[in-house]
Simulated assay, not measured.
Amino acid sequence: MKSKYLRVERKPIHEGQCVAEIRVQLLEDDAGWSPYLSVDEAYVLDGVREALRQGDLETAAWYGRIYEMRPIAGA
């Protein structure tokens, strides 16, 4: 059996003018596909992306921080 451990990172999800910063647990092991998300973590990211797409900031904010992106004048 291969050893596994968790690593927590922040993953940005961008949709439209909003970005959600979501904490996810990445699984790491001796396999060639490390690090990777669990299926549950992938569903969370998909749910947040869909909430942002629909403008449901309350649901998206339940999972992490939400930021609004605005253009900077003159840039």
Rank of each mutant, 00 (worst) to 15 (best):
K2L: 13
V48A: 01
G32A: 11
G55L: 00
G32S: 12
I22S: 11
K2T: 15
Y36L: 03
Y5D: 14
R23Q: 12
M69G: 01
A31M: 09
D40A: 13
R70G: 03
Y5L: 13
Y5S: 15
I66L: 00
E28G: 10
E41P: 07
S3C: 13
D56L: 00
H14F: 12
Y63G: 00
V24K: 11
E58W: 06
Y43I: 08
Q54W: 02
W33C: 09
D56K: 01
R23P: 09
R7I: 15
R49G: 04
R23S: 13
P35D: 06
E9Q: 14
P35N: 08
V8L: 13
K11E: 15
R70F: 06
E68D: 00
V24E: 06
A61Y: 02
P35E: 08
G16W: 09
W62H: 11
T59G: 02
L45S: 04
P35Q: 06
L27H: 13
V8E: 15
G64C: 00
A73W: 03
G55W: 01
R10M: 12
R23V: 11
L45I: 01
S38A: 10
Y5I: 13
I72Y: 03
A31F: 07
Q17W: 08
L27T: 15
V44C: 12
G16A: 10
Y63F: 05
W62A: 10
S38R: 08
L26T: 12
R23F: 10
M69E: 03
D46N: 12
R70M: 05
I22V: 15
Q54F: 00
D29P: 09
E28S: 11
S34V: 09
P12E: 12
M1P: 13
V48F: 02
V19S: 09
L37G: 07
R23H: 11
Y5V: 13
I22M: 11
R70K: 10
E15I: 07
R23C: 08
R23M: 10
T59W: 01
R10Q: 14
Y63V: 02
V19Y: 05
A60L: 02
M1S: 15
L6W: 13
K11D: 12
Q25S: 14
R49S: 01
S34E: 08
R23A: 13
P71S: 11
V44H: 10
E41G: 08
C18P: 04
A20I: 05
L37F: 06
I72S: 03
Y36K: 08
E50A: 03
G32R: 12
G47L: 04
G16R: 10
G64S: 04
R53S: 07
R49H: 08
L52P: 04
G32L: 06
Y63A: 00
L57F: 03
L57H: 06
E28Y: 09
I72F: 04
D46W: 08
E28N: 08
T59N: 03
A60G: 03
M69R: 04
G32Y: 06
G32W: 05
Y67L: 05
H14V: 15
K11A: 12
S34Q: 09
H14G: 11
C18G: 08
R53W: 05
L37Q: 07
G16I: 09
S34I: 04
E15C: 09
K2D: 15
I72P: 02
A61E: 05
D56I: 00
A51N: 00
V39C: 07
L37R: 06
V19I: 11
L27K: 13
Y43L: 12
A51F: 02
G74R: 01
I72V: 01
L52I: 03
D29L: 02
R23D: 14
V39Q: 11
V48L: 02
